[in-house]
C-alpha cells in the first residue's frame, strides 16, 4: 500500500456521495425541536406553587394562630378569676378549663400538622413533576 494509492483512494472517497436521510428529515428535526421548546416554555411558565399550596399554608397559619390564642386564653381566664374572687380556689376550675383548652388546643395543632404535611407533600410532588419534565426536554 503506497502513498500514491492512498492519495488516489482519498480522491475517490472525496468523490463519493454519502447516504442521505429522507427529504423531510431537516423539517422533522426542526419541528421536533420547536415542539419540545414550546413544551419547555409551557412548563417554565407554570407556577410550581399553585393555589392549593397557598390555601393550605394560610389555613395552617390560621390554625397555628388559633392554637396559640386558645392555649394562652386558659392562663388568662385563671388569672382573671383570681383577681375577681381572691378567696376562691380556682385550681379545680382552672384544671377543668385547662383540660378543655388542652384538648381543644391540640386539635387545631393536629389539623395544622396534617395540613402542613399535605402541603409539603403537594409541594414536593409538583416540584418533582415540573423538574422531571424540564430534565426530560
Amino acid at each position: 500500500m503506497n502513498e500514491l494509492e492512498d492519495i488516489k483512494l482519498e480522491a475517490l472517497l472525496h468523490e463519493m456521495k454519502l447516504e442521505s436521510p429522507e427529504v423531510n428529515f431537516s423539517a422533522r428535526v426542526m419541528n421536533k425541536i420547536f415542539e419540545e421548546e414550546s413544551e419547555f416554555n409551557k412548563i417554565k411558565s407554570t407556577r410550581i406553587l399553585g393555589n392549593g399550596f397557598w390555601i393550605i399554608l394560610v389555613l395552617f397559619v390560621a390554625l397555628f394562630a388559633i392554637t396559640y390564642i386558645v392555649s394562652n386564653s386558659g392562663v388568662l381566664v385563671e388569672s382573671e378569676l383570681t383577681k375577681i374572687f381572691p378567696g376562691l380556689n380556682t385550681s379545680g376550675v382552672s384544671n377543668g378549663y385547662q383540660s378543655i383548652f388542652e384538648k381543644m388546643g391540640t386539635m387545631p395543632l393536629k389539623i395544622a400538622v396534617i395540613l402542613l404535611a399535605s402541603s409539603v407533600l403537594l409541594f414536593i410532588e409538583r416540584f418533582i413533576n415540573a423538574n422531571s419534565k424540564v430534565f426530560a426536554i
Partner: peptide
C-alpha cells in the same frame, strides 16, 4: 433564534445519518 439550527441540520445531516446507518 432556534430556526438557525436548520442550517446545522442541513449541513451535517448526511454524515450524521451515515454514521448512524
Amino acid at each position: 433564534q432556534t430556526n438557525h439550527f436548520s442550517y446545522i441540520v442541513e449541513k451535517y445531516k448526511d454524515i450524521v445519518f451515515s454514521i448512524a446507518l
